[in-house]
Design a binder for these strands. Structure first.
Length: 269
DNA sequence: ACTATGTCCTGCGAGC
DNA sequence: TGCTCGCAGGACATAG
């Protein structure tokens, strides 16, 4: 599932490959779930003829900064959802099932968006910022302030994109493991020192994952559609029943905020 | 203003 | 072998 490190990897890969290229024509699916803000016709009209000034990540979104005389500062925003993939391929390449976007590039290649589960979203923006704060640059004071007075479980708070950008189910579990904090703790009850540890653990695991090119568990592919790269060693997520890497106690699985949650009942209090 | 829960969607693995 | 069923979860809608 694409979280911050995976989206970062995808965006960097795309920036490297298509920056400066021009979108000559676009085909967009009419599946309505992909569109919340604009209709496909409007998106297509904006994309066609636009030069890709750059590709970057904001929150869990891939942002294409477009350079186009008639719509200045236009941005194409792609959310990968659970299973979204952005591929840059030769036009001869076999068309995958669930392809929702085909953009023909001046260089002769095609940018394609494939998303079987259709949790992804396509939209247009200008000056896109996202609803919350980027975890890699937030300071300790602001981090502590995010959770003050909140009654929901810290795990659920970490997943809230209006607070922190880009943390999903995997890295939430991993950050809490590294910080030794039980996912069910009410966010507002965490001590300043605990939140400092949580911030440090989160930043560490996110940076490790970015350095490894994303954790490729299920549906994630990099910008070239290649399987895998490296995988970081997960210490909690998906390790139900397996021994804690620190104390050997079996990792427990519970549900928090409607999401599967993994933790060590001994190390995380 | 918060928080909790249901919903969308397909592929895959478990179980029979 | 082939089928059904349940689960996976990001973000939003809705309810409390």
């Amino acid at each position: 599932m694409p979280e911050l490190p995976e989206v970062e990897t995808v965006a960097r890969g795309l920036d490297q490959r298509i920056r400066g290229d021009v979108i000559e024509s676009v085909w967009l699916t009419d599946k309505p779930q992909l569109y919340r803000k604009q209709k496909p016709a409007e998106i297509a009209a904006t994309l066609e003829g636009a030069k890709v000034a750059g590709v970057r990540r904001v929150a869990k979104h891939v942002v294409f900064d477009l350079d186009k005389p008639k719509s200045e500062h236009a941005q194409w925003i792609v959310h990968l959802g659970m299973t979204g993939n952005l591929l840059v391929v030769d036009p001869q390449r076999e068309l995958k099932k669930h392809t929702h976007v085909i953009a023909k590039l001046k260089s002769g290649r095609e940018l394609r968006f494939v998303d079987p589960r259709r949790f992804g979203k396509l939209s247009l923006h200008t000056g896109f910022e996202g609803p919350g704060t980027e975890p890699l640059t937030i300071g300790v004071e602001d981090f502590v302030e995010l959770f003050r007075g909140r009654k929901l479980a810290i795990k659920a708070a970490l997943l809230n994109q209006s607070l922190l950008h880009g943390v999903g189910n995997i890295y939430a579990d991993e950050a809490l493991f590294r910080a030794g904090i039980r996912p069910t703790r009410r966010a507002g009850t965490l001590k300043r020192e605990e939140l400092k540890k949580l911030r440090a653990g989160l930043i560490r695991v996110l940076n490790e994952a970015i350095a490894a090119g994303g954790t490729s568990i299920n549906d994630y592919r990099d910008a070239e559609g290649a399987e895998g790269l490296f995988e970081i060693k997960l210490r909690a997520y998906g390790r139900t029943g397996e021994p804690c890497l620190r104390c050997k106690t079996p990792i427990k699985r519970i549900v928090v905020g409607g999401r599967s949650t993994h933790y060590c009942p001994r190390c995380q209090r």
